[in-house]
Design a binder for these strands. Structure first.
Lengths: 333, 333
DNA sequence: TGTGGTACCGATACCGGTATCGGTACCAGT
DNA sequence: ACTGGTACCGATACCGGTATCGGTACCACA
């Protein structure tokens, strides 16, 4: 059966007996429409089941209702939660999030951003501050609001919401030192790609150094973080350095893997060995042993970033906003 | 500084000394362009840094390069992985995935789908087969290819890629019975919303019934699945029914929580108590105790769904495709 | 009675592409 | 020389909205 063409603004206008322009204004709630006509248009639209065409509106209005989100990975629940927060943040604004995944690949990132820009979105939310120069150029020249998220250690292109990973690493080190730990190990994955994990590592190491100590041993691996990797690296690390009393992980997944190893190996956690992760993922709470972690407000970050783009009000002038979150440390003791 | 207007097709045409139309054809690789002009246009485009405007192309060409993806949740890693698979599947097709999250709310789902359709995307990927009638109407009348994913138990609107959850539940029950288990318990979350989990439960129960048995006890809770919930519900269940030798969970997260409880409570797993989840999430492998699970090809499902939309070739006629996956059971013994 | 506002409305010109269709050039066949 | 293809090209009309700007009514005020 022939599917009916979907009604356009002209149809609404005809139905309401006004001009296209008046219909457009009425539907958008723009000014210069009499109450009578506005009602007429609205009911007409409802009657014929009119749904606006954002494509046309975007093309005409110079700005689309699209929000581009660039994240390194979806498999990492952290970014999925950020996305979730973004979805919450734009709720009711009529905007659509579109995402691109870079797999921590700078070239892919450049492509993704370029591609997104071609849709001329209302805004772009990109992860991190450490893009290569050409990507930064793209972002700086983009005629859209750019929000960089998750990180604060660096110079943002414009707005920025996140936390200092360097500080987070340092804070965890301080807390662990204060808890009496003395022999530190480190386990990380994908440090070559994940600059934020690296910043945490550096912050942690710097704090240790300030206290006249350092990591006794580290185990790192390429590829992305899995509990399995955490388990294996921990086993390896502890076999070589049984004297460690604390391991810092690049994130909770690895730390959980560490916990699993310890349980299987009969190592007492956190008594003999304290494990510290990062992110404060939900499952940490229900682990059979307690581990330390830094809780990060992922959803809030997403929400805040989305709002910056959605809200036109705050600061018409190009004062770049900077929203700072601080992870909360939980030693789990 | 005044940002330069981004170059349009007309600019390219002017630069190449041909008409807009010829430039358009050349860039799209459509026919009717001499090799000479095609090269001219391509180099001109490169020279002035032309990037097409998909918005305009979509408006004009009647079909956008957008693919709408409707999923119930992002927090659940399973859907994040599906999304990931979709992103892989459309790789290189120049399409953009846009997503909408429904939080398992049918009304929200209706809204999200409606909203997505307004962008008239090339295709729509929606989760599940059990939409309410009005939503189905929306999908059936949509002038786009619709792919329903994750489920097979029901009547798809058109294409469909996924697995039978009823069968998956039944298969797991058979496997557990074959492994000699006799006293079954069940733990689930959000069954009111999650129809697929419910189908697994029903399939499992039906299989038990065929063998003249059934669940001795069940513990369910609203809200979404977390390891914490799994841990609590398991503790509760085992306290009341210490004689159980097998628990079926609505998914791996809950099952992991169950495992954590058992470890903490000193229950021998899987010897005394066998835990069975669903999904085959990565972390299952590294758990300190082995649990059973059904591995689902989430990424493949996403990829397959994306391909159905991306590829115009297969079946010009509206033969609805149906791609069947079967989860693979791993008892972890 | 004129004059200036204010409120509202709609014609028209885009936005940046693509579909369509009618040329023009050039060559082969007769 | 005439006809019919084939290959290629570009003018024009959209796609479905919004920005802009010039009306028209109508009222208040001088």
């Amino acid at each position: 059966m022939a599917r009916k063409r979907r009604p356009t603004l002209s149809d609404v206008a005809a139905e309401a007996g006004v001009s296209k322009m008046t219909a457009s204004r009425a539907l958008r709630g723009a000014g210069d429409v009499s109450k009578t006509n506005a009602d007429l248009v609205r009911t007409a639209a409802k009657r014929i089941g009119y749904v606006g065409n954002p494509l046309a509106a975007s093309l005409s209005g110079k700005r689309s209702g699209l929000i581009g989100v660039v994240i390194p990975s979806l498999t990492n629940i952290v970014f999925a939660e950020v996305l979730s927060g973004i979805a919450e943040g734009i709720e009711g604004s009529g905007m659509q999030p579109v995402f691109g995944v870079t797999n921590y690949d700078p070239d892919k990132e450049y492509e993704v951003i370029r591609n997104m820009l071609s849709w001329n979105p209302a805004g772009l939310i990109v992860t991190g501050l450490d893009q290569p120069e050409d990507t930064l150029g793209l972002l700086r020249n983009a005629p859209v609001s750019v929000v960089q998220i998750m990180d604060l250690d660096g110079t943002p292109v414009s707005a920025c919401v996140g936390m200092s990973h360097h500080a987070a690493g340092a804070a965890m080190a301080e807390a662990l030192l204060a808890a009496g730990r003395t022999a530190f190990g480190y386990v990380g994955c994908g440090l070559d790609r994940d600059t934020r994990a690296r910043k945490r590592f550096e912050g942690f190491a710097a704090a240790l150094a300030r206290h006249g100590t350092g990591f006794e041993a580290t185990r790192t691996r390429e590829g992305h973080s899995t509990t399995q990797a955490g388990r294996e690296l921990t086993a390896d690390l502890m076999a070589a350095h049984p004297g460690l009393d604390c391991i810092y992980y690049s994130n909770d997944d690895l730390a959980a893997g560490g916990a699993f190893h310890c349980i299987a190996a009969g190592l007492e956690v956190p008594g003999a060995l304290l494990l510290a992760g990062f992110n404060g993922l939900d499952f940490v709470e229900s682990l059979p042993v307690r581990i330390a972690t830094s809780r990060t407000p992922r959803r809030e970050i997403g929400r805040a970033a989305a709002r910056i783009i959605v809200d036109p009000d705050r600061g018409e002038d190009p004062v770049a906003q900077r929203i700072v979150f601080s992870p909360r440390i939980d030693l789990g003791l």
